[in-house]
């Protein structure tokens, strides 16, 4: 039976591999389809546009991957993005901070928000879903309170808008930040003990403690990572739209989680990759952009996203139940 278990695990690995290949195929299919259907879809111009519009959600998805690997979830990422955007705007306009300093402070505020999530999860042992459902309302609420719901921050200097609306070396400026952070995340997850320990925590948190792994530290850092990246995404968002509002990034958390899960990360924790997440982000971004070019109604995007995600979820769930179906529940192993 132990060999059977081995084979099952091998099958799951193969499945994960297949899953990523599958995503590549989907991406290719999307590209070909929309090239035919849409005018001006298959252009460098449009590719850059897709990149520009997916940077924020892409950043959140990359940062959410380690959290989901530990078996957690963060629903507050979009709200925190909104709060950080408002903090950035207020510091720049009302406190007279230069944009750089305001941006750094907004990112720090994001880290503090993430630390709040992490501390509540690790210290009070509250379920991440509940904690971040709470901060989901809390962060957005503070953002709305700071602006009384109506205040928007605009008229940012062009030097700042360069970050969100211009190009650097041929690519949208923010794409470079996205690539840099995605690369860093890939190294952290796949080449350091931090990433490996996220997986250990996701597979078996108790086992991680008995191995002397710093479980609380791993979990806290994962949430701080999401908070920090939410701050960075807030600055990019503000630069792209040229305005900061309390409702910035609403719903982004769900889109980001969709991308992570679509990318093959198990919602139960333990397995997943950054490149999978990137493929997930790309599949969703191309789908949304392509449908606009093909002049399809917006609802179609929702339907197709749902179909894509459910297919992915079904696959990982099946894989999970196969791996967790112990060789035998009632019999001690030899």
């Amino acid at each position: 039976m132990s060999t059977a278990f081995h084979h099952r695990l091998a099958r799951i690995r193969a499945l994960v591999f297949r899953h990523e290949s599958l995503l590549l195929l989907i991406l290719l299919a999307e590209w070909i389809t929309f090239s035919f259907l849409g005018r001006r879809f298959a252009t460098w111009e449009n590719a850059a546009d897709i990149l520009r519009h997916s940077a924020e959600i892409g950043l959140l998805a990359v940062a959410l991957t380690p959290v989901i690997l530990t078996g957690g979830i963060d629903l507050s990422a979009g709200s925190l993005l909104g709060l950080c955007a408002v903090i950035f705007g207020k510091l720049w306009r009302d406190a007279g901070f230069p944009p750089t300093l305001a941006a750094v402070t907004a990112v720090a505020a994001g880290a503090v928000g993430g630390l709040l999530n992490g501390s509540l999860v690790t210290r009070l042992k509250l379920p991440p879903l509940i904690v971040t459902l709470g901060t989901f309302s809390l962060f957005r609420g503070i953002a709305e309170a700071l602006t009384r719901g109506t205040d928007t921050f605009t008229n940012f200097p062009n030097t700042f808008l360069f970050l969100g609306q211009e190009r650097l070396l041929g690519l949208p400026t923010q794409a470079w930040i996205f690539f840099l952070l995605a690369g860093t995340a890939w190294l952290l997850i796949h080449r350091t003990t931090a990433g490996r320990n996220c997986c250990s925590a996701g597979f078996n948190p108790e086992g991680a403690v008995y191995a002397g792994l710093p479980l609380s530290k791993i979990q806290t850092l994962a949430y701080v990572g999401v908070g920090t990246v939410a701050g960075i995404a807030a600055v990019i968002y503000t630069a792209r739209l040229g305005q900061a509002r309390a409702d910035a990034g609403s719903g982004y958390e769900l889109l980001a989680i969709t991308a992570v899960v679509l990318g093959g990360t198990s919602i139960f924790g333990g397995t997943g990759t950054i490149h999978g997440t990137l493929l997930g982000v790309a599949a969703l971004a191309v789908l949304n952009n392509g449908l606009v070019h093909a002049r399809q109604p917006r609802e179609t995007a929702g339907i197709l996203t749902g179909v894509l995600l459910l297919t992915a979820l079904t696959l990982t769930t099946l894989a999970y139940f196969r791996s967790s179906r112990k060789p035998s529940r009632t019999q001690p192993s030899p």
């Binding site: 695990l9 250990s200 078996n204 086992g207 991680a208 191995a211 792994l213």
Partner: peptide, 17 residues
């Protein structure tokens, strides 16, 4: 099975944990 090892992780990862 619960505390001694992390079953889905490779032998080498478990040993160096």
């Amino acid at each position: 099975r619960r505390h001694g090892v992390i079953l889905p992780m490779p032998v080498e990862h478990n040993m160096t944990m």
